[in-house]
């Protein structure tokens, strides 16, 4: 940052320090970098792995490969048919992963998290940012963040698909059954719904855009419900990163034969 602007501007109190905060303000951005970084690395590796994503005996499909659209997908794992043989650089779930990535990249919570942690804009409240100029989301490329609602619509459909996968998983090779994998898949889907429905765009679409609540009682009621979830959007954002990794990791271990599924019924 220029030494003559921002908190060092003329007529402001002359204080040489960029911040006088004495608490550990750097901890939150650091944890964000570590958390998001770890997820991105894991998800990238798994998305291109091309194996250990489907458990044929129990019909477990990891969300990282749903819907599996390549002709190379393992038999039974393609719940919505296949397109063609995907080359190595296209993940099998190429129809859903870019939208899910877009949904999280443009998410109002993640924007806060990565603007702070990766772009230092600002690194923390009342800690001066290092940039000389700032235009925010007024122009390209960041003005594109306004498409968030379209990614929400797409993510809504993908969550429906994940729900369908989780339901199908109760019907394994030997008919109906319940195992630990089912509980993990269902738990993950419930949390994904929590994240998807608590989205700020969802809140806007259901009723937030209304100017007069009293004239639209049903949408107002919906808005109050989404608003209650919306307060927890940040928690859902982090919990679902963990639940996605946990679900995928469990399916990977069972599919590759490292562990066998803990069966409760059948």
């Amino acid at each position: 940052m220029d030494e003559n602007t921002g908190v060092f501007s003329a007529r402001r109190a002359v204080i040489p320090a960029r911040t006088l905060r004495t608490d550990r303000w750097w901890l939150q951005p650091l944890l964000t970098v570590l958390g998001l970084g770890a997820f991105v690395i894991y998800a990238t590796v798994r998305a291109f792995w091309g194996a250990a994503y489907w458990v044929p005996e129990h019909h477990y499909l990891t969300p990282f490969y749903s819907p599996c659209m390549s002709t190379a997908c393992e038999p039974g794992s393609s719940h919505f048919g296949t397109l063609f043989d995907f080359p190595w650089f296209i993940p099998y779930a190429a129809l859903s992963l870019p939208f899910l990535l877009g949904f999280r990249l443009t998410c109002y919570y993640y924007r806060k998290a990565y603007y702070r942690a990766f772009w230092f804009s600002p690194p923390a409240c009342a800690v001066s940012e290092p940039h000389g100029k700032y235009t925010g989301e007024t122009r390209l490329p960041l003005i594109i963040q306004n498409v968030h609602r379209y990614f929400f619509y797409a993510a809504f459909i993908v969550t429906l698909i994940n729900t369908y996968d989780a339901i199908l998983a109760f019907d394994g090779e030997n008919g109906f059954g319940i195992g630990l994998g089912n509980i993990i898949l269902v738990g993950n889907v419930v949390l994904l719904w929590g994240y998807t429905l608590s989205c700020h765009s969802c809140r806007h679409v259901t009723g937030g855009r209304l100017k007069n609540f009293a004239k639209h009682p049903t949408r107002y009621w919906l808005w109050t419900k989404v608003s209650k979830l919306n307060v927890r959007h940040m928690q859902f954002a982090w919990i679902t990163l963990g639940s996605l990794v946990l679900t995928d990791f469990y399916v990977m271990l069972v599919a590759s034969g490292v562990i066998s599924d803990l069966r409760i019924i059948n």
């Binding site: 109002y108 924007r111 806060k112 603007y115 702070r116 804009s121 600002p122 409240c125 009342a126 700032y134 235009t135 925010g136 989301e137 007024t138 122009r139 960041l142 003005i143």
Partner: peptide
Amino acid sequence: HGLGFCNITKCCTEV
């Protein structure tokens, strides 16, 4: 009024 400048980093809410 420059709403596009806001990058929703939530410091206003925090303080």
